[in-house]
Structure formats: structure tokens, C-alpha cells
Design a protein around this nucleic acid. Structure first.
Lengths: 110, 110
DNA sequence: TATACATATTCGCATTTGCGAATATATCAA
DNA sequence: TTGATATATTCGCAAATGCGAATATGTATA
């Protein structure tokens, strides 16, 4: 594959990963993993103002990570791909292992 | 679990994900998936200046995503956890599917 | 010790990101 | 049409991020 093309792919890849690099978006994706939700429901679940939720949803939408469907006055959001949750779970395991190693080190010193 | 604690975990989770949200870091992680490499080797592989590589390595190191080991004058970096690559692969699949849907739509219009 | 080589860090700067507040748009119901 | 409700967007700003250039640190070797 072309060098330039590879860089472009990594750029898009990074954008998808960037969709996960915010605590609220992570919480939103896990919430949607439980089932479709309206913007208001998400705002309630996350205890965050509606405009904030909408802005984050836009970011996820642009990356195909959530899907919007209008239902009357509401807009129902659905998780775009279950593999997103699998990736999140894997990375949470990585985090857990790292924290365990760190705290094991800390105890060894004390 | 406590609300505040959950937020703190999501924050750390987001930091790990943030480690993936840069094209160069993605390229570096895939390069390290092939085997351990020194900073210079990484700089060559990515065709990027050494200080840039070192700065990105610091970010990955802080998140436990790579491990540094000194060998004489060199410092050899190793992938910290293979699950990172699995997560990256999953997200690349998500990207591919999204792009396919998009281009299918584009063709349907044309 | 002096010199070369490998890696890390700092600085100044431009870009991006997330947020609150305010406002716009869309849909339904009376 | 008017009002109420749900969602999206814009604006100004503060904080975070990435980068090139320069410099510092650490290690081996002569």
C-alpha cells in the first residue's frame, strides 16, 4: 500500500479512537450498549446538560459510532457497532492491569 | 460503585483511549507489535524526528501502553499489552464498515 | 577526560478540544 | 397559528495537544 494512503488511514483510525478519548463519551457509549436512548435520557443518565450531550453525540455520529433515528419529537440514538464496546472493554482491562502493577510497586516500596 | 469513583475510572479509561488518538502513536504501536524497537528504529520507521517520537513514547509510557528498557546507550521499547492491538484492530474494522456504508450511499446517489 | 551517539526535555506557538450560555430548529398538540 | 417540548448549533473562552528548534541528560568508547 501507498505511504500517503497508509497515513490517511491512520488519520481516520485516530479519529475513531479520538471518539473514545473523553469520559462523557465513554459513559454515553456504555449507556447506549444497554439499549437505544433519546438525548434527554442520555442527559439524565450522565447528569450533564443537553447541549453538552448533543455536541458529544455529533462527534460520535460523524465517526459512525452511534446512529440517530427520529421518532416524533425525539431522536433516538443507537450504538453504531458492538465492537466499540469490545474495544472499550479491552482497553479497560489494559488500564486495570496497569493500575495493578503500579499499586503492587507502591506496596513493595512501603 | 460510587458515582465519583465511576467518573474517575472513566477519566482514566479516556486517557488510555487518548493514547490511541494520534496517527503517529497508532503507527508506533503497530510497529512495536512486530517486535521491540529502539527510539531510533521507530523514528526511521515512521520517518519522524527523534524528539517527536520520544514525546509520543512518553505519553504511551505514562499509560502503561509501552515498556522501556535500557540496553547500553539505547532504550528498547516493547508493546505493553497485546490487547491494545486487538482493540486497535476492532476499531479499524468499525472504521472500515463505516466507510463502506458511506461509499455505498454515495454510489446510490450517483 | 573528551568525544560521539542515543534519548529525553523544554520552550514558544498554532491548533484543537470541551464547556457554559444563549439561540436556533423541528415536531407535536391545542 | 401558538405554545410547549426535544434537539442542534453558535459563540467566546480556557485548557489541552502537537510540533519544530534548541538544549539537556545519559552511556559508551577512545
Amino acid at each position: 500500500m501507498d505511504k500517503k494512503l497508509l497515513e490517511e488511514i491512520n488519520h481516520l483510525h485516530a479519529q475513531v479512537c479520538g471518539g473514545l478519548s473523553d469520559p462523557k463519551r465513554i459513559a454515553m457509549l456504555y449507556a447506549l450498549a444497554e439499549g437505544p436512548k433519546s438525548v434527554m435520557e442520555l442527559a439524565e443518565t450522565l447528569a450533564a446538560p443537553q447541549p453538552t450531550i448533543s455536541r458529544h453525540l455529533k462527534i460520535l455520529r460523524e465517526r459512525g459510532m452511534v446512529i440517530a433515528k427520529r421518532e416524533g419529537a425525539n431522536i433516538i440514538y443507537t450504538l453504531g457497532d458492538k465492537r466499540i464496546i469490545r474495544a472499550l472493554d479491552l482497553l479497560r482491562e489494559v488500564l486495570a492491569d496497569h493500575l495493578n502493577k503500579r499499586s503492587a510497586l507502591a506496596e513493595a516500596i512501603a
